[in-house]
Nucleic acid binder design. Structure first.
Lengths: 247, 247
DNA sequence: CACGATTATATGTCTAGACATATAAGTCAA
DNA sequence: TTGACTTATATGTCTAGACATATAATCGTG
């Protein structure tokens, strides 16, 4: 058998599975505009005739396309190409340490302060907590190749994350610690722009009045806030990039 | 029949399908931490015994969880809980008109200028085009309840979007027009922060030196750039919000 | 012990059926 | 014409099998 000739690039030799070929074929027609938004896709019975296969096979292809949001399926009515998503971007924001090391730069971390205290009214408002309780308040700085990269101002609710009381945030940045120790179910990012005040300017080593990108991130598990964090990035050098697939 | 009593809330009456119940059950165990990252999930055979169903049924549940990134499946080895995703956010950015009307505010649009011209060297660099060709350059302003919301500075490549030559951008904002007339396959957003220069400050009716959020968006179809747009938002009043599900 | 061959196992794909269910379209009566 | 009822149809879910395939584990050999 000559199959061994293809060692090392087996994928190039073996064609994709049938359901995958069906999926890619339909995907291609949609992306090239051959089947525009609103177009009715052949029914499962028509497709099983076209591809000479069982209904479950075309069903699997169509189910995946529906889950991916490319098509819409309605009983009795049929399957239709969805109109282009009102831009839906996938922003991949790893924790900052991972972000910096992924860029091949050396990661630096300085803890500015870390206090355990009873939640103030402002803390409760920020965490959306209704009862009194304890929190950990952290300020720290991340740097890449010894240049300030971002300053972080974080609050962790000890009622929902009691393990945070014993974590050593002098050694490990709180974002990385949380990501690896605490499961979360929901999060929210808010991105805005401000000009640097003097504390931020000093920590980031930029001029007072220079633009900063601000990311506020709230993380929940089952409707209970785990942590609230505000990150300041120097706006002229830092960029948030999101690349994504249509449509 | 008493079924009519449930009219209006039929979903509360009918329990989810079996594969969905299996999926939700496993999802719950993962999210609550009962099955932590790295935990090996029972094999399909064990699950079909537990839920008294065919293998295809548990396979459908597990396939969806794998597609959603919650679990990882390896042949012969088994199925494992993935460690929490390095945050993956879904930023929903509709076109600005849709964004404003979705907020229940009145949308206003002013075309500042719209020129059809041969691409300059700067235009070609911005579009990543290697050949000379024509472009449409547009500047316009979006407002919500008669308050400036964003200024837009856009370039459309007429070589890839020839229809843009005849569109009337005095009536319809170019973002909306493109979204509804031109299919795209890939896009990229870059978010940064700057301080307002005098032209931007005047258009947004803010002070020179005030912070602005800048979004650069490039849109492609099959590696050919369709359009490049830069949006300036007033940074103190505008926020980009992304809410998403873990993990 | 190291390394190559074999085997067992869990997932991956696929089939040819079945019944369920939502709903567009057609039918018929008030 | 309108509203209520019926019907046809496309999708939704499920079964009990089948063979394919990647690979962890085992076994055998030098």
């Amino acid at each position: 058998m000559s199959r061994i000739l293809y060692r090392g690039r087996p994928d190039a030799a073996s064609k994709p599975t049938l359901y995958r070929r069906i999926r890619l074929d339909i995907e291609r027609r949609i992306l090239t505009g051959e089947w525009p938004p609103g177009h009715r896709i052949p029914s499962e019975h028509q497709l099983m005739a076209r591809y000479h296969c069982a209904r479950m096979t075309v069903n699997k292809a169509l189910s995946e396309l529906a889950q991916a949001g490319l098509i819409e399926r309605r009983r009795r009515a049929g399957t239709f190409v969805r109109r282009p998503q009102h831009l839906s971007a996938v922003l991949k924001i790893a924790d900052i340490r991972a972000e910096i090391t992924a860029l091949g730069r050396s990661y630096g971390y300085q803890l500015i302060h870390c206090k355990r205290r009873a939640a103030t009214a402002a803390d409760r408002a920020r965490l959306g907590a209704d009862k009194a309780g304890k929190v950990v308040a952290i300020a720290c700085r991340h740097s890449a190749d010894n240049v300030p990269f971002a300053v972080e101002d974080r609050l962790i609710d000890l009622a929902t994350v009691p393990e945070a009381a014993t974590a050593d945030f002098a050694k490990e940045p709180p974002g990385s610690w949380l990501l690896h120790h605490v499961p979360w179910t929901e999060a929210e990012h808010t991105i805005s722009a401000v000009v640097a005040d003097d504390r931020t300017a000093e920590a980031l080593d930029i001029a007072v009045g220079a633009p900063c990108l601000v990311i506020d991130r709230y993380t929940w598990r089952s409707a209970r806030t785990l942590t609230a964090v505000r990150l300041h990035y120097p706006g002229e050098t830092h960029r948030l990039v999101a690349r994504f697939r249509g449509s």
